[in-house]
Each structure stands twice: as structure tokens, then as C-alpha cells.
Write a protein that binds this DNA or RNA. Structure first.
Length: 678
DNA sequence: ACTTTATGCGTTTTT
DNA sequence: CGCATAAAGT
């Protein structure tokens, strides 16, 4: 029997070993939230609870995996049997099993954001005459998603936008949304929101399934509860209704997903929804030195959103220094400083993996990325576009999908569009002429398609046809790796080289090969992999070999729940963090919470940066003040340093030479072409 | 009629 | 980079 009282502090112990009934754990940053949750699981298993009857909902796949690994350390392999995952993946799992009752096949496709937007775009093209005045597909997608996550109708959401931008055609938007709904139904697939909607629908409309699941899941634990949306809260409420063993763990100070429908009220009103629930507060912070916590507490002192009363109490000894605030010339100077400090820490014995650069939005990482790349500092980046969203990956996935499912229209169209001289119109035409089915493994289907192709495309077709032909053999022998190999060797490599610059093509080819290896090793085989690939994120499968020591570059959002001894936060400047948009729209509270999350990731050393000059693509530049978040921090809590000018070695050609400060009144833009490496 | 190429533009955060 | 639009090419 594990002695939990030795492993946990009194509050953690209370939470982890609590008896049955609802319980709310308010865990401030760095107070051992994961630790508590893990030991709760271990406690339950030791008590004799069947692990497969424990449901652990997390916010990211990464969190789920980490939790499971740690639980395994405490209580062995039994932990592997618990149900854990994101709301989306758990819903997908349930829907694959029980979705038939809602009219879905177990192998239903999950549409990722791109698929979703393409469908909506096609519908707009086909149904809206003057598309100029009509909202773009991105906006429509956003509205549809908001409606789903907030439990509102499209009318309500569209009307909301109408007040902002006059003359939105609400009925037409509703029509488009309904057509999209019908199209999805026709394809038998679900988008991300559908997973939640249908997961909940399963519980609400199918009494026998509801009762089965309520009976089955004896314990339901939810991590990051402050970021649940209405659907998710209802989902867990229903699931836990029978046994009432719902444990919600969260921190209202760290609610940073309201833009995705998260309702801070869920955590605030939890005690009302679950009368008699036990409340445990974790306030002892073991993560950060007091100098960092002082800053964190000050940041939240100005928060206006009402929250639970709690303070971070330092339980570590003082660190070496107060957090530093560097005022630098521009973003490059910050990057240079970060590089210098990384080296300094590294030479003092820190590993690269002990350090992280956390920023508000992806583009703010460019300077640091370039600097580290040039200086050969190893880093990993939780990049903006995941591997699974990149065109080359999607191309290969389309090929595989079509092999597995000859009726996959989207994949067919994507694939034939790779042929020269074939565009959207052609793809649709071929599909219809082929009888809305194309089995590449079948020689008569291949011949039929060859007949339809225009001369230019026909020239490139034979290698692809050959790949299809060979694929059958490989699939029979279960050599999935070979399928992708052939596809590349025979067809796709040439295509990549035509389409991209040399190095770029090379990189993409590498990605595709890596993908092949991933699929070959996939647990659920090719079909299982394809079905759930939309739920995988860059972090999950990217070549993140932990044995390689590298600095982490991440958005603050993606850094949630993690910690590093050394943290750098670049671009704490006006309009950058808090973001201009949030400022304009008066969503400052959440920005503040986001900054709080960023600050509380740091254990020993924290470095803040405020560049004073922002540069634009056209060579113009303009001065920017410090972030108001930094200005609010009393001076004595930070060590302020001013870095006067960018060193010459990289100042040349950028800023110094031809010093032409064109005053720019226009909105900011960024020169991606020259700064973006793949 | 449809596809390709050129050009201008905009970007928060993600399952 | 991707997207939308316009112009040029088949």
C-alpha cells in the first residue's frame, strides 16, 4: 500500500484520497495539480477500482499521455487501462463504438479545419451569386463553430456579427450553414465540433447508451476544468450523474480559451451544480522561486473577472535573481540577447531542454528561430502549421484514403488536382463521370480515368497509375511503408521537385518518409491511423525525440501545464502582448491571464523582453512602447536592463544601412517570404 | 471554359 | 505561407 501522505502535502492528500462524491480542486499554478490527479488515480486503483472504469479528461493529448505515464510509475501497468484523452478524442472513441445509433459508420472521417473550410468554400461558390459582399469561408466556419460551442443557433451568431459589420445576410448564412450540415451528413463525416456535439447527443438522446456509460464510468476526472465549454461541462455532468464521482481540477486564473467557447462560469458555478461538493484549494507553489511568484501575484492583482480567492504561496527558497526585463532595440536584439542567455545558462550546467521561449503568437518567434538556427542552437518548435496540416502530408493522406475508401470524394479531388492541367472543375467532372467512385487498385478504374484526362495530365499519369497498381500488392502483404515509398518514388517526389525549391522539396520529402514510418508503426493499422489523424497534433507525432537536448519554442497557449527552469518571453511590447486585437475588443482580462500563465511556467529564471522598434515588410519601422503588463509591475520586482543597439554583426542590412524610417500609418504586415523557413 | 501564373493582401491563441 | 483576384495561357 502506498503511503500517500508521504508523497503529498496535506491539501493534495485531501484531494487525492477524498471519498466518493463531487469534488472541486482549485489548483493555482505550480501547486502540484498533475501530481494530485495522478495520485488520485493511483489511490483509486489501489482501492480496487477497475482502471477501465476511470475516465480522465484532459485538454491536450500530451497532457493525457504524461498523466498516464506518471500514473504508471506509481501504480504499474494497471494505469494503462484507464480511459484518458481529450474531450474530442474520447468522444471520437465513443462515437466509433456507438455512433451507429446516430447514423454514423464506425469508420467515419474526421474533417480537419482545412477540409471543413474547403467544403464551406465550395458551398459558397455554388450558392452565392455575388460572393464579394458575402462573408468569406473562414468567417462562416468561425460562426458555425461558435454556434456549436456556445450552444446557439446560426441566426444568433450571425446577428451578432451583423451589429459589428453592417449588412450581413443572415438568412443566406443560415442557408449555407444548413447546406454544410447536409454535405457532412452525405459524406458521413464529422468536424471537430461535431465530435463534441454528437458525443453529447449520444448521451442525451440514447437512453440505453447513456445508462450504460453512466454505469460504466465510476469515476470521472477532468483536468483544466476552467477551459471547458458548455458542451464539455454538460457532457461530464451527465456522465457522472449516476455515481456522482466527478473531480474537477482547474484554476480560474488560467482560463485562456474563452475564444474557443470556454466558460469560466463552469468552474465558478461548479459548487452550485454539484451541491455539497468538496472544495480543496492548492496554494503552495513548489515550482517557482519567490521572486517569480511576486511578479505573478502582481499580474493578477489587476484582474477584473471575479474569481476564487487564492494566492500563490512560495515554498521554495529565494532564487539567484529577480526576473529580468530587457529593453532592446528591436526583435533581433531581443533574439540576440536570448541567444546569449541560453549560452550562459548552458555553460552553467542547464540543459537546452530546461529552457523555453514563450510568445503570444507564432510570428513573434521568427527572430528567435532565425537566430537559433544560425547559431546552431538545437530547438524544437510547436509550429503554427502542424505536420498533419501541411500540404504534402495532406496529399499523401489523400492518396492513402482513396486507396482505403474508393468513395472518398475529397481525397480523389485533391489527388487528381496534383496532375498538371487538372483543376477543381476537372476533378469534379472526372469524379462524376467515374460514377462517384474510384478504386485505384482496380485496373479498369485506372483505365477509365486515363481516358478522361487531358493530354498534359495524361503524360504524368502513368507513374501514379503504377503506384496504384503496386499498392494492392503491398496492402495485401501489409507493407504500408512500401505503399508510401512507391507513391513517392514513382510520382510524388517528381511532383514536389516541380512545385518547390530544392531544399524545400527535400524537407517535405523527409516529412513524408517520416509519415510513412509513423503509419507503418501505427497501433491501429492504416485505417485506424487515417481515421484519427485529424486529432493528432504536431506535438504528438513530430520527431520530438526527447533524447535530443533542445530549447523549446512555443506559444503560451501550448505551454499550458508545462514548466521550465528558464523561461524567456519576447515581444512584451505595445500591440504584441497583449495583442492589439484583444485590446481593441476589450478582452484584456484573458490576455492578462495568458501573461500569468506565461510567467508561472518559470521555475528559476525569467526573462522579459520589450523591443522598442517594430519593423515592417516594406522597410518601414515604428516605435512601440512597452507592454502595459510590464509597466504594471512595480519597478523593484524586476531587474531592468537596456540593450542599446543591435550588434553590428547582424545589424548590417537590417535597420542600420539606409536608415529610412518611413513613418508607417498602415496596419502592420510581415515579410513571410524572406523570414519563413518552411 | 478552365487552368496557370502574377500580384496584393493579411495574420492570435487550437482540439 | 495561403487566399483572393485578375490577367494570361491552353
Amino acid at each position: 500500500m502506498t503511503d500517500f501522505s508521504k508523497l503529498l502535502n496535506p491539501e493534495q492528500f485531501t484531494a487525492a484520497t477524498a471519498g466518493d462524491g463531487p469534488i472541486l480542486v482549485l489548483a493555482a499554478a505550480g501547486t502540484g495539480k498533475t501530481r494530485t490527479l495522478v495520485h488520485r488515480v493511483a489511490f483509486l486503483i489501489e482501492k480496487g477500482v477497475d482502471p477501465s472504469r476511470i475516465l480522465l479528461l484532459t485538454f491536450t493529448n500530451r497532457a493525457a499521455r504524461e498523466m498516464l505515464e506518471r500514473a504508471q510509475k506509481v501504480c504499474g501497468d494497471a494505469a494503462a487501462a484507464i480511459w484518458s484523452g481529450t474531450f474530442h478524442s474520447i468522444c471520437a472513441r465513443l462515437l466509433r463504438r456507438y455512433g451507429r445509433t446516430l447514423g454514423y459508420e464506425p469508420g467515419f472521417q474526421i474533417l480537419d479545419e482545412e477540409d471543413q473550410k474547403k467544403l464551406i468554400g465550395d458551398i459558397i461558390k455554388a450558392n452565392v451569386k455575388d460572393a464579394k459582399d458575402f462573408p468569406k469561408k473562414d468567417l462562416i466556419a468561425k460562426m458555425i463553430s461558435e454556434a456549436a460551442n456556445e450552444g446557439k443557433t446560426i441566426e444568433q451568431i450571425a446577428s451578432r456579427y451583423q451589429t459589428k459589420t453592417a449588412g450581413v445576410d443572415v438568412p443566406k448564412i443560415v442557408e449555407i450553414a444548413n447546406l454544410y450540415l447536409a454535405r457532412k451528413q452525405e459524406l458521413g463525416s464529422m468536424d471537430f465540433d461535431d465530435l463534441l456535439l454528437n458525443g453529447l447527443k449520444l448521451l442525451k438522446t440514447q437512453p440505453q447508451i447513456r445508462e450504460l456509460l453512466q454505469e460504466h464510468f465510476q469515476y470521472v476526472l477532468v483536468d483544466e476544468y476552467q477551459d471547458t465549454n458548455g458542451l464539455q461541462a454538460e457532457f461530464t455532468d451527465i456522465l457522472a450523474a449516476k455515481w456522482k464521482n466527478l473531480m474537477a481540477v482547474g484554476d480560474d486564473f488560467q482560463c485562456i480559451y474563452t475564444w474557443r467557447g470556454a466558460q469560466i462560469e463552469n468552474i465558478m458555478h461548479f459548487p452550485d451544480r454539484w451541491p455539497g461538493c468538496k472544495i480543496v484549494k492548492l496554494e503552495r507553489n513548489y515550482r517557482s522561486v519567490p521572486q517569480i511568484l511576486d511578479v505573478a501575484n502582481v499580474v493578477m492583482a489587476d484582474e477584473k473577472t471575479p474569481g476564487f480567492d487564492k494566492q500563490l504561496r512560495a515554498y521554495r527558497g529565494a532564487g539567484l535573481d529577480k526576473p529580468y526585463h530587457f529593453i532592446t532595440y528591436d526583435g533581433r536584439a531581443s533574439a540576440n540577447e536570448i541567444f546569449r542567455l541560453i549560452n550562459e545558462h548552458h555553460s552553467m550546467g542547464h540543459r537546452f531542454s530546461d529552457m523555453a521561449v514563450l510568445y503570444r503568437s507564432h510570428f513573434q518567434s521568427i527572430d528567435v528561430q532565425m537566430m537559433l538556427a544560425r547559431m546552431k542552437v538545437p530547438f524544437r518548435i510547436t509550429s503554427g502549421v502542424g505536420v498533419f496540416e501541411q500540404i504534402h502530408t495532406k496529399d499523401v493522406l489523400a492518396y492513402l484514403r482513396l486507396l482505403v475508401n474508393p468513395r472518398d470524394e475529397l481525397s480523389f479531388q485533391r489527388l487528381v488536382c496534383l496532375l498538371p492541367g487538372v483543376g477543381e472543375k476537372g476533378a469534379v467532372k472526372f469524379w462524376d463521370k467515374l460514377g462517384r467512385v474510384f478504386d485505384g487498385k482496380n485496373s479498369s478504374d485506372r483505365a477509365a480515368l486515363a481516358q478522361l484526362l487531358p493530354a498534359k495530365a495524361a503524360a504524368d499519369w502513368p507513374p501514379l497509375a503504377k503506384a496504384f497498381e503496386c499498392a494492392q500488392d503491398h496492402i495485401e502483404h501489409e507493407e504500408i511503408g512500401r505503399v508510401i515509398e512507391d507513391f513517392c518514388d514513382l510520382f510524388y517526389e517528381d511532383h514536389l521537385r516541380k512545385e518547390w525549391e530544392e531544399q524545400d522539396a527535400e524537407d517535405r520529402l523527409d516529412d513524408v518518409k517520416e509519415l510513412g514510418a509513423q503509419i507503418a508503426a501505427a497501433e491501429n493499422g492504416l485505417e485506424g491511423f487515417l481515421a484519427d489523424v485529424a486529432l493528432l497534433t504536431n506535438l504528438d507525432v513530430r520527431k520530438n525525440d526527447p533524447s535530443i537536448d533542445r530549447v523549446t519554442l512555443s506559444t503560451v497557449h501550448q505551454a499550458k501545464g508545462m514548466e521550465w527552469p528558464v523561461v524567456f518571453i519576447p515581444w512584451l511590447s505595445e500591440g504584441m502582448f497583449p495583442s492589439q486585437k484583444a485590446q481593441e475588443e476589450g478582452r484584456m482580462d484573458e490576455e492578462r491571464r495568458l501573461f500569468y500563465v506565461a510567467v508561472t511556467r518559470a521555475k528559476d529564471s525569467l526573462y522579459l523582453f520589450s523591443p522598442t522598434i517594430r519593423k515592417l515588410a516594406d522597410g518601414g519601422m515604428f516605435p512601440v512602447g512597452q507592454s502595459e503588463f510590464v509597466k504594471e509591475i512595480p519597478e523593484y520586482l524586476l531587474v531592468h536592463r537596456r540593450v542599446a543597439m543591435a550588434p553590428a554583426e547582424y545589424g548590417g542590412g537590417y535597420g542600420m544601412r539606409g536608415y529610412t524610417p518611413r513613418q508607417s500609418t498602415t496596419k502592420q504586415s510581415w515579410d513571410w517570404k524572406s523570414t519563413w523557413r518552411r
